[in-house]
Design a binder for these strands. Sequence first.
DNA 1: AATCGATAGTTACGATTGCAACTAATATGC
DNA 2: GCATATTAGTTGCAATCGTAACTATCGATT
Lengths: 154, 154
Amino acid sequence: MAADGFELSAFLPYRLNRAAEFVALRFAAQYKARYQLTRPEWRTLAALGSTSRPMTATEVGAHSAMHKTKVSRAVAALEKRRWLTRREDAGDRRIEHLELTKTGIRAYGELTELAARYQAELDTLIGPAGMQALAVGLDAVERAIGRFELPPSA
Amino acid sequence: MAADGFELSAFLPYRLNRAAEFVALRFAAQYKARYQLTRPEWRTLAALGSTSRPMTATEVGAHSAMHKTKVSRAVAALEKRRWLTRREDAGDRRIEHLELTKTGIRAYGELTELAARYQAELDTLIGPAGMQALAVGLDAVERAIGRFELPPSA
DNA sequence: AATCGATAGTTACGATTGCAACTAATATGC
DNA sequence: GCATATTAGTTGCAATCGTAACTATCGATT
């Protein structure tokens, strides 16, 4: 109806979500088929694999915009697979430092190969100009996110 | 560990998802609180409200990247609220043309006011350069999506 | 016109999710 | 130093979701 001046096709949450959903689903199909990994599990693995130092569950959640219960369950699943270990903080016993095991690091390495191939495919599909613009735009969003107060259910 | 050259922070599915999640959650909190609308319901309402002609459930799904069962349930919920009506296609009785009722249109109008305000807030937070870059980048993604074969679970 | 395959949409059911409440530990105010 | 608030992480439970199977219809083949 577009009675007022609102244009859904220009509404950022709508556009971002649509793009994210399409792009993520195709990749999810790959790691799901080969590794029986769920999306929260992959994201947790990726967050931990991408830095060389351990992270807490809270950090993983902030890093990948996941609810803490999702993280909690993903961590439990990855631990059961022996892809990560928990280590209690010496000073603060509420905190657990999460670290990938050798097996977990190897899995992360294999997954990132898939990811790199997928990224190359996206580069081709989207083109250098589009990717460049996205990088700039997403950087701006990142900076804005930093100024958000996080919603209760992140 | 970043053993290989892979950089998660540059991986498009990861970046897009993170941005989309943050941006969408804050808006969802608003329409959820005021209208008790779920995300699929809002998206269905938005899809139908944004064009002046009726759409089928399949079109709604393609339009907003939702699984058909999600659309089916959202349609049922909106119908129960009397925000939309179904009309059977004359030539093909499998197809239902979905249309907003007067009440539905009014609700859409109110929601788009919220949306417009939120978009303005985002404009400020992200800045004109960032928004412009995002628009260009997301356009490129849209064109690429057009060349995707849609994944089975869209 | 009977059969086979494809498509639109729904639904049963198991899996996943998020909210709220919980445990356990730390930080803060008095 | 004790009560209270806050934070990290987990879990019970109800709601939501996606897969697969289903109904109903249409199109194509023969």
